[in-house]
Amino acid sequence: MMMLFDVGLVVVLLGLAAWVVLARNAFAAVAAFIAYGLLLTLAWLQLHGIDIALTEAAIGGGLTGALLIGAVTRLGSAPPIAPATSMTLALAAVAAAATTAILAACVLALPDPAPTLAPLVADNIAATGVGNAITAVLLSFRSMDTLLEAIVLLFALAGAWSLGADSAWPGRPGFAQSAPPNGILAYLARILPPIGLVIGIYIFWTGADNPGGKFQGATILAAMWLLTMAAGLTDAPRVGSRWLRAALVAGPLGFIAAGVLGSVSAGAFLALPAGHAKPMILAIEIALMPTLTLILALLIPGPPQRVTS
């Protein structure tokens, strides 16, 4: 029964992937991409990668899907691209088939059982004080990567902002939104955020010992904020706002400060002091949470476009 489900999942995934590539209409391709992301979540669940499943649903399907829908909407008036010649298509098909064959050969050539660092992580996880191995990797063993990923997101937002018009600087991102005050959108934007807030914070909090974490939690919080923005209940802050900018850098700077504290108290930058590892990890995650929420949400409206609200 499970086997049948898995095979069905793989077939649908491949079909959706083909649809994304072959669809002539950009909106249809994006819709298929979002469905693909949600089904990929199921695939990761089947592989027992619950943390990855949550991330895929939140970032891969959800946030990327929202960004792509925004892009398609803006492209609405753009002239269609000329279809590829049959020669190009044939060459592309050959190249894709060859790439697939070589990658398949590589996957089959991987050693079995796969060499893994999992036992090493299990031996050392006690020093970090957390129960979720993924959180231990992300915030202790390889915490530099997590710090740098937060900085990547900040670069992405700074890059998006830099595309704005000079006349709109330092104004508000996106267009002013308004929805009928008694419509369904405004209704949902009043009802859902309290629930989303609880779920988002729970997913963040439980990430220390169970699947979950700051990225997934922050995406849910960002979605709630975007909902209220779309309904015209809140407005995006001005990109010139000192408070906004301070909150945007608080996460990475707090992370670096914790790292420096580690070099004083535990002998290495980003090291966690013995016995206080878990509180430190929580402090870093709490510092990162508002930064991630703000960046993920503000990537959607994009560059500043208006000076007034």
Binding site: L117, L120, V121, S140, F141, M144, G262, A266, F269
Partner: peptide
Amino acid sequence: VYLLGGWAPPLGV
């Protein structure tokens, strides 16, 4: 050389 977080490779960076 600097071992980040005091963790040696392959576990650390």
